[in-house]
Computed example of a mutant assay.
Amino acid sequence: MDISFKTPKGRFNYRVAGLLIYEGKILIMKDENQPYYYLPGGRVLLNERSEDSMRREIKEELSIEVDIKRMLWVNENFFTEESLNERFHEICFFYLLELKDKEILKRGDEFIVNENGKIHNYYWKLFEELKDINVYPLFLKEKINELPLNIEQLVEMKD
């Protein structure tokens, strides 16, 4: 069971997201009907450690295994999701990930994955390219150039 629930005032969501970085590029994704890009990851299950959730989500979405190097950020995010027009209060743990092998790189700089009927478009983007696209979280555009050695807490309020 995902740790996500709807209330009369909006939705609470507990999720994880992973930064896969290779040769100055970061892997981001976009769903076919969404106007924005985001990092691979997903919701944490009840009674699941966030690191286990991160590994599971990457395996489900990309069919690859990763190592977790370290947690980078804990983000408390308040926003209205654009396509659903739904208010969110989201807690997200961001992890720096490392590829166990380079097989995914053979897919190219852009590739599509069909995850149980849901189409995900993936892109390897140079860090500086993030400035010119609609990518969430917003802080990623600046923070990608200097990843923290210790966990940082970030709060975003977007309306």
Rank of each mutant, 00 (worst) to 15 (best):
residue 131 K to A: 13
residue 49 R to G: 01
residue 34 Q to T: 12
residue 123 Y to W: 08
residue 101 D to C: 08
residue 104 I to K: 08
residue 143 K to Q: 13
residue 76 E to I: 07
residue 86 E to P: 00
residue 43 R to L: 12
residue 150 N to T: 14
residue 51 E to P: 01
residue 136 Y to E: 10
residue 106 K to P: 01
residue 86 E to M: 14
residue 11 R to E: 13
residue 109 D to I: 07
residue 23 E to W: 02
residue 113 V to A: 12
residue 139 F to A: 04
residue 13 N to C: 15
residue 24 G to Q: 05
residue 71 M to L: 10
residue 155 V to D: 00
residue 14 Y to A: 06
residue 55 R to A: 03
residue 18 G to S: 04
residue 19 L to M: 15
residue 56 R to P: 03
residue 109 D to A: 09
residue 61 E to Q: 15
residue 69 K to C: 08
residue 20 L to T: 08
residue 76 E to L: 09
residue 49 R to V: 07
residue 139 F to P: 03
residue 126 L to F: 00
residue 102 K to P: 00
residue 63 S to T: 05
residue 98 E to V: 15
residue 153 Q to D: 07
residue 98 E to T: 12
residue 138 L to E: 09
residue 77 N to E: 11
residue 34 Q to A: 12
residue 130 L to G: 09
residue 100 K to R: 15
residue 101 D to M: 05
residue 65 E to D: 15
residue 119 I to C: 07
residue 106 K to C: 01
residue 24 G to Y: 04
residue 44 V to M: 09
residue 120 H to R: 15
residue 93 F to H: 10
residue 67 D to Q: 10
residue 80 T to M: 05
residue 139 F to V: 08
residue 93 F to M: 12
residue 72 L to D: 00
residue 118 K to T: 13
residue 157 M to P: 00
residue 62 L to Y: 03
residue 38 Y to I: 15
residue 85 N to W: 02
residue 118 K to S: 06
residue 45 L to Y: 08
residue 17 A to N: 13
residue 17 A to Q: 14
residue 67 D to C: 07
residue 114 N to Q: 07
residue 62 L to W: 05
residue 7 T to W: 04
residue 82 E to H: 11
residue 7 T to I: 06
residue 6 K to L: 11
residue 21 I to C: 06
residue 159 D to V: 10
residue 33 N to M: 14
residue 145 N to S: 06
residue 32 E to W: 01
residue 68 I to R: 10
residue 72 L to H: 02
residue 31 D to H: 13
residue 1 M to K: 09
residue 135 V to Y: 04
residue 23 E to V: 01
residue 20 L to I: 15
residue 147 L to Y: 04
residue 53 S to K: 09
residue 53 S to Y: 06
residue 128 E to K: 14
residue 69 K to Q: 13
residue 1 M to T: 14
residue 71 M to W: 01
residue 37 Y to Q: 11
residue 124 W to V: 12
residue 10 G to F: 02
residue 130 L to F: 09
residue 155 V to Q: 03
residue 48 E to R: 13
residue 85 N to V: 08
residue 89 H to Q: 07
residue 55 R to W: 00
residue 18 G to R: 08
residue 93 F to Y: 09
residue 74 V to H: 07
residue 137 P to M: 04
residue 2 D to T: 11
residue 34 Q to L: 08
residue 135 V to W: 07
residue 126 L to N: 04
residue 59 K to Y: 01
residue 37 Y to P: 10
residue 30 K to S: 02
residue 136 Y to W: 11
residue 116 N to G: 06
residue 151 I to F: 01
residue 25 K to G: 03
residue 49 R to Y: 08
residue 136 Y to C: 03
residue 130 L to Y: 04
residue 69 K to A: 07
residue 79 F to Q: 02
residue 124 W to M: 10
residue 41 G to P: 06
residue 22 Y to A: 07
residue 157 M to C: 09
residue 107 R to K: 14
residue 91 I to W: 02
residue 152 E to F: 02
residue 23 E to F: 02
residue 129 E to V: 11
residue 19 L to G: 05
residue 146 E to L: 14
residue 65 E to T: 12
residue 112 I to N: 04
residue 144 I to S: 05
